[in-house]
Design a protein around this nucleic acid. Sequence first.
RNA 1: GCCCCCAUCGUCUAGCGGCCUAGGACACUGGCCUUUCAAGCCAGAGGCAGGGGUUCGAACCCCCUUGGGGGCGCCA
Length: 482
Amino acid sequence: MTSKEVCDLRVRFAPSPTGYLHVGGARTALFNYLLARRFNGVYVLRIEDTDVARSDKTFEMNLMETLKWLGLHWDEGPDKGGSYGPYRQSERLRIYREYAETLIKEGKAYRVYAYPKEIEALREKMINNGVAPHYNREMLEAFSTEKRRAEYKEKGLQPAVYFSMPRKQFFLKDMVKGEIVFSEGSVGDFVLLRSSGIPTYNFACVVDDTLMKITHVIRGDDHLSNTVKQLAIYEALGANPPQFGHVSTILGPDGKKLSKRHGSTSVEEYRSRGYLSEAVVNYLALLGWSSPDAKEIMSIDEMISKFSLDRFSKNPAIFDPKKLKWMNSHYIRAMKPGELLLRLKPYIEQCDYEVKHENLEGIIEVVKERIHVLTDFCEAAEIFFKKPSQLPDINSELISVFLNCADRLQKLQNWEKMNIIKVFKEVLKHHKVKRKEFYSTLRVLLTGKNEGPELADVVCLLGRDEVVSRVRAIGRGEQCSE
RNA sequence: GCCCCCAUCGUCUAGCGGCCUAGGACACUGGCCUUUCAAGCCAGAGGCAGGGGUUCGAACCCCCUUGGGGGCGCCA
């Protein structure tokens, strides 16, 4: 990339607000963000809401919220404004119509007075005849009879505007895939402006990218075949296309395009299931891109400093929830308890017990080692807030050992982990009990579980009163049964 | 049917003609550590889709086959 391009670099993320942000979309957003930040460019958010039926303002809000959560903040967008707005396609309809009009005047586009049903029939007929379903001007304009035009006028209908696809080859120098040739006739004429006056994706996208001075476009390779249409429109408009980089699609474990039936596909779902944005961003970055030093755990700033366009992989990537989970647990373990507490807040509220403790950070410190997602917290920390529901089945000899242990703990001067360990050792010295048996039984006695954090930590955090009370329960339990 | 893209361990990938006896990460298996589980550490298993070329030499370049993905919408 030359220095001139660098200083003018403008990229965009252009989602359509028809659902929650998909992990594939998030990855696209991330790559564009990284490119912008790496080369001091401008990152634009554009809302592609030209699908009136499916677009929803709620999704738009959610999209922006999720993007912010991921830390992918944009410089220009519908909420922030900018010199090239508006940034919502539904607010730019006049612009598209003007451009369509120009193309019609220049003979590069034309009006079609055909009903969608008729076009559909035409299409089916071609498919049935084993011909590629490509339209051309001649077959489409056949519908535009005098009679039909009058009918449209009478009913107040607007004709759709079709683009006249030039019969020639198109070349694309893709930043990811390399040189691609679209042979002549690979696509036919297609709709620019619907009869509703709303532009189609390919048209709006080109007009906007041109007007918004977008220099680089990183997107999923499901757009690759359509790029020829866009290239043709750029040419018709007399505009220079941006540099394209088509990243391979993210697939599900079965090798098919990642979809709902593979489980969670939206960033929102991972967020609510207790994933950290750092982990999501980090994992997504590794799907189709790799850092030059082979380092996998990277902060977003690290990714920015290492980002370059020549490290994209051409092959499709299968989404691996296991690795994401591993990465998430890694980030949880690496996080300072104070910070983790903040992230944990919404999940703590969902616990079915009251989380109240003078040293909650201390609890988080020992619990974070064994959780993979934030939603694991409630179950993992339960031992500190709930007394065990069942007492272990132990003999009276052992009971007296534990009662003695409780007495010693009761009298312990400074309630500190090291001192608690000393008490354990004393008890083991004075009683004929196996180490392993002592510790494992004490654990069950205190927590009702066979596994958990280091016992001294548990005891320390539980606090003197609670520990003594829980241990002595075994004594009371025996009394009751007699 | 036509067009386009892709092909390295199960998965993500490194590799850009000799540093490859193909490296790393996740997952998996075994061991160590340890009062348990987890983490951590060590070790192991596991791959260049197949076939032709080009070359002194090919995972890497070319062609074919096969396999996978995507597109061909008044969806984006």
